[in-house]
Design a protein around this nucleic acid. Structure first.
Lengths: 235, 235
DNA sequence: ATAAGCTATATATATGATAAAAAAACAAAC
DNA sequence: GTTTGTTTTTTTATCATATATATAGCTTAT
């Protein structure tokens, strides 16, 4: 069995194989994929499984199919970039400094506002999770915990504390992106441990209920990372 | 033929019927849907069509299915809220002032930053589209164009001008949400025509390349709408 | 009591046949 | 010669049925 797809059923295997291939540009946008029958041939699976995979990719905005016209790759503007699968394919397939920059430009919008909401709402239970994540970061500095996991946990708990389902839904999105892009950012500079105090600033502002300070501390944290990438791109 | 679903094939009809029903809470979260076979019975369609619909809803994060366990509704945190279909079902099915507030809290993060990026990038071709939308808004004030369409076009063109694929991808999302929620916001106060000058402020700052002014003008525009909702909720 | 094995039942997969849709080729009318 | 209407053809869409596989719950051996 294909180790990459272990644990998945045939349909899901094909979804991931095709999804990654499409995003990587193996099939021309607007142009056609192999026909249903040819896909069965190529991948040696039944029409049911093939059709179900195509339908799932259609649901994610990557494909469209019509009789006589075949299966076509949709234009990029139709791709559900916020679908964790699609995002993962995009990041793994075409990760560049420029894409990383664009991702950070989005976080620069999201996280400061989420922090501000967290400060405003004062949901103590959700805020305590931020505190725990911060402790994990400190422990990671001392080599007692995983730095990446602690960092992710911190940012996830902020999104949760916003108490807004739209921000909360972005957890999967940011989680996926952080995991994929971390090797990139870490390679550039000693990012992982240097910014504990910057993270603490965000937490402190949230605990105090200082909306404006939370927004600004979080913005500071994000824009530093963004500047790092921009500098790297200028080289 | 069911007029609501005209023009769609059977699979897509079932996707929308089930999607709307799930989001509205017709089926218990975590609990089960009718079995595959029962769904065929109920909707009088074949297993292929039924399975393909279930797979599409699975791709959107609403369902999960396993042998012997059946088809289950996923918890809300797994729903791809940024999928235009899901968003439409959520907004149409459960639109409340609170949900509208949460949506505006997200726009408050996105649009100011998109405006800032637009000002920074100075992509003249994309910026000219904002100008056209603004002209349409003015025309709409004089009854010569559709107010809602012009307003949507304005906000879409700003997202495009950000020149960032993640922001651009939010076009579908914000487009859907604006269309559904407009009857709500219009009902509250004379929102539609009053804010031409506020929109123009955003455009002017972008044209001048004044990043900070663009952010702040856009933020002002969004937060006014948010305050309106909050006041309404306090009544 | 616990773990290995069995059973029942749901989805997963395979395959054949038919329907419907739409592009392309063709024919007719003007 | 261009337009308009019709037929052809190809592809997906749908249906029906058979088989495989996975798993929750039960059974049984130890």
């Amino acid at each position: 069995m294909d180790k990459v797809h272990a644990g998945r059923n045939l349909t899901q295997q094909l979804v991931h194989t095709l999804g990654a291939a499409i995003v990587q540009g193996d099939y021309p946008i607007g142009g056609g994929l192999p026909s249903e029958a040819e896909l069965c041939e190529e991948h040696q699976i039944s029409r049911s499984a093939t059709r179900e995979a195509v339908k799932m990719l259609t649901a994610k905005g990557l494909l469209a199919s019509r009789p006589r016209q075949g299966i076509r790759v949709q234009s990029k503007t139709n791709w559900n970039m916020f679908d964790p699968d699609v995002l993962e394919w995009v990041l793994k397939g075409t990760l560049t400094l420029n894409l990383l920059k664009e991702f950070l430009q989005l976080r620069l919008a999201i996280e400061p506002e989420a922090s501000a909401l967290a400060a405003e709402n004062q949901n103590l239970e959700l805020i305590s999770r931020i505190s725990l994540a911060l402790k994990r970061m400190k422990a990671a500095d001392a080599g007692l915990d995983d730095s990446l996991e602690a960092d992710i946990e911190f940012h996830m708990s902020i999104l949760m504390a916003s108490d807004n389902p739209f921000y909360q839904q972005l957890r999967n999105f940011i989680d996926t992106a952080l995991r994929v892009s971390i090797r990139f950012t870490n390679r550039i500079k000693g990012v992982q441990t240097a910014d504990y105090s910057a993270h603490k600033d965000v937490y402190d502002a949230i605990v105090l209920g200082d909306t404006e300070a939370a927004r600004s501390a979080s913005r500071h944290l994000q824009s530093e990372a963004l500047e790092l990438i921009k500098n790297e791109m200028d080289k």
